[in-house]
Amino acid sequence: MAEAAVAGNGAEAKMRVWRGDASGGEFRDYTVPLEEGMVVLDVIHSIQAMHAGDLAVRWNCKAGKCGSCSAEVNGKPRLMCMTRMNTFEPGETITVAPIQTFPLVRDLVTDVSYNYEKAKTIPPFKPKPKEADGTRRMYQEDIDRVQEFHKCIECYLCQDVCHVIRDHNENKPSFAGPRFFVRVASLEMHPLDTDDRLEFLRNEAGLGFCNITKCCTEVCPEHIKITDNSIIPMKERVVTRFYDPIARLLGALGGKKS
């Protein structure tokens, strides 16, 4: 942290960081020394140590595994710990703003409780009985799809970038957001699960609000193909259940529970 002032080759990072809370605020400029390999989060820490000890920022692992340090860097939703400073032009002023979809607590920290409330509404895993020999048999090809969803680090960048709630606050009560479509998909495609969440998806979770414009997929730091692999497959299952009389008639083409 503080030793950044000693090392380095004289290069500097010019940052424009949002300071303030729900009552108001402004972008403030800071300049700190730049070391090789630094990421935006390192620079924020330098600002904390050298200029603004109370600069509020959320972070934990600094290795892209915990999903705490979400922010908007030059207007793009990103993990600060995975945004390297050398991806910007030398001398460029880099803007760091808090994520815009959730209420601001202070500086770069927002109140993400929306997500934790949505998580509580999801019908939990409900496994079928064990095999006759007392084991659980699942095969790799059956769980590959779901393991992709389990990579989610809950950084909520997909929730942040989703225009359904980002630009239309009034939709928040009726829309769960991409993170939770991924979660529901992981349960619906789980080879052991027996519950049915399609009605939930269509109604409470508001799957129909998604217009598949794919920003969630674009910002996902885990490169989960949120739209193609979870949202659209869920939309298709909802179609089978609610909008496709022929498929319902045939039955055979539907999901496990129809």
Binding site: E72, G75, K76, P77, Q100, V161, H163, V164, R166, D167, H168, N171, G206, G208, F209, C210, N211, I212, T213, K214, C215, E218, V219, T227
Partner: peptide
């Protein structure tokens, strides 16, 4: 995706504000 973004500006690009003030998606 292509025409919602480019014709409806809903949204025009990621982290760029929607053109319309109301939104009900495909509901």
């Amino acid at each position: 995706k292509a025409y919602y973004r480019s014709f409806f500006w809903s949204p025009p690009a990621c982290a760029v504000r929607d053109a319309a003030s109301g939104y009900s998606g495909e509901t």
